[in-house]
C-alpha cells in the first residue's frame, strides 16, 4: 500500500513563543525546529501499516528549503522518499490542501495520513480540506485504525466518547494523540536517510491557485493572567473560595 504523509515544520512545543514588537511575526532566534508532534504520529502510523502490509511511505512538505531537515528526520524514522514543494510564500490551509491533493493525483496513494493539527497555527483544517478536494472519505482525530482487505475502520476521539466509522480506500486519516507512540530515528536510519530520494518541486509550477484568502494582519501576545498567590492550608483555600471568590 502506498501512503502519503504530509508533514509540517514547527517550533519545538516546549519553546516559549515571543511575538515581535511590531506584531509581524514571532521571534525565531533560539527556536528549535521540529516535525509537528501530530505529524510524527502520522508518520509512525504509516510505517506500522507498511510494516504489516508492505508498501511505500512518501512524505510531503510545503515550505522553504530549510524544511528538508524535517523531511530527512522522517526519512530516518523509516519513510521511503520525500517531496518538498518549495515556496517562500505564506500559504493558507486551502492552498496547501490543493497542493497535497495535486501531488496525490500524481502519486495515487491508497491513504493519506496527516496530523490533526499543527501546533503553531492550531488551525486543524488541512486533512479535511484534502479529503474534500479529492472527494475522499475522512476520519479525523483517529485513535485506532483497523485495515481489512480493502476497508478501513477508524475509532475517532469525539465529544462524549469514541465514534467508529468505516469506508473504502482511498481515504484521508488525521491522527490524534493516542494513535501511537512515535519511534525515534535510529543511527542506521539516519545514515540510510541521507541516500533516500528527496525531490523538490516549485509550488508555482503545479498550476494550483495559491493566492491566500486567509490573511494574518497582526500578531499580539494575549493579556497576561495575574496569579501566584499562595494559601497556607486546604481549610483556608475553601474559606477563600467561599467568602472572597464566592464561587462555592
Amino acid at each position: 500500500m502506498k501512503i502519503l504523509v504530509p508533514i509540517k515544520r514547527v517550533p519545538d512545543p516546549a519553546t516559549t513563543i515571543r511575538v515581535l514588537s511590531d506584531g509581524s511575526g514571532i521571534a525565531t532566534d533560539n527556536v528549535k525546529w521540529v516535525i509537528n508532534p501530530f505529524c510524527e504520529i502520522a508518520i509512525e502510523e504509516a510505517l506500522r501499516i507498511k510494516e504489516k502490509q508492505t508498501g511505500e511511505v512518501v512524505l510531503i512538505s510545503v515550505g522553504q528549503s530549510t524544511w528538508q531537515e524535517q523531511l530527512r528526520t522522517g526519512l530516518a524514522m523509516g519513510a521511503d522518499r520525500a517531496i518538498l514543494v518549495k515556496t517562500d510564500a505564506a500559504l493558507d490551509s486551502l492552498a496547501i490542501a490543493r497542493i497535497i491533493a495535486k501531488i496525490a493525483g500524481d502519486e495515487k496513494p491508497e491513504l493519506i495520513i496527516l496530523g490533526k493539527q499543527a501546533i503553531d497555527d492550531d488551525a486543524n483544517q488541512v486533512g479535511q480540506m484534502v479529503a474534500e478536494v479529492l472527494g475522499w472519505p475522512q476520519a479525523t482525530f483517529a485513535s485506532k485504525v483497523d485495515i481489512t482487505a480493502d476497508k478501513i475502520s477508524v475509532v475517532r476521539e469525539v465529544d462524549g466518547g469514541l465514534e467508529t466509522i468505516a469506508f473504502k480506500m482511498p481515504a484521508v486519516i488525521t491522527s490524534d494523540l493516542r494513535l501511537n507512540e512515535p519511534r525515534y530515528a535510529s543511527l542506521p536510519g539516519i545514515m540510510k536517510a541521507r541516500k533516500k530520494e528527496l525531490k523538490e518541486i516549485a509550488a508555482d509550477s503545479l498550476g494550483v491557485d495559491l493566492a491566500p484568502k486567509l490573511k494574518i494582519k497582526t500578531l499580539a501576545a494575549p493579556p497576561k493572567r495575574q496569579g501566584g498567590r499562595k494559601i497556607a492550608s486546604a481549610q483556608e483555600m475553601v474559606s477563600l473560595l467561599h467568602t472572597e471568590a464566592k464561587v462555592i
Binding site: 512545543p13 513563543i17 492550531d122 486567509l214 490573511k215 500578531l219 499580539a220 501576545a221 494575549p222
Partner: peptide, 15 residues
C-alpha cells in the same frame, strides 16, 4: 488563538 493561545492573531478573510 495560535501557538497554544500564546499568540493572538488578527485575521482577515477574502472571498
Amino acid at each position: 488563538p495560535t501557538y497554544a493561545g500564546n499568540v493572538m492573531a488578527t485575521v482577515e478573510i477574502d472571498g
